[in-house]
Amino acid sequence: MARAATPAITALVAAGVTHTVVQYRHDPRSDSFGEEAVHQLAQDGFVAEQIFKTLVVALPTGLAVAVLPVPSMLSLKAAAAALGAAKATMADPAAAQRSTGYVVGGISPLGQRKPLPTVVDSTALQWDRVLCSAGKRGWDVALDPRDLVRLTKAVTADIRAE
Rank of each mutant, 00 (worst) to 15 (best):
L55A: 12
V56G: 08
V57E: 08
A58V: 06
A58T: 15
L59R: 01
L59P: 02
L59I: 01
P60E: 09
P60H: 11
T61H: 12
G62P: 06
G62R: 00
L63E: 02
A64K: 06
V65L: 15
V65S: 11
A66L: 06
V67A: 12
V70L: 03
V70S: 00
S72I: 00
L74N: 03
L74C: 07
S75P: 01
L76I: 02
K77N: 04
A78K: 13
A78L: 13
A78I: 07
A78D: 04
A79T: 14
A79Q: 10
A79V: 14
A79F: 10
A80K: 12
A80V: 06
A80L: 06
A80S: 01
A81M: 13
A81P: 02
A81H: 14
A82S: 09
A82G: 08
L83F: 07
L83D: 13
L83Y: 09
L83K: 03
G84S: 10
G84Y: 12
A85K: 08
A86D: 15
A86E: 15
K87I: 05
A88S: 05
A88Y: 12
A88M: 09
A88W: 12
M90D: 15
A91T: 00
A91G: 05
D92L: 04
D92I: 00
D92R: 02
P93F: 08
P93C: 04
A94L: 10
A95W: 13
A95L: 10
A95Y: 11
A96Q: 01
A96H: 01
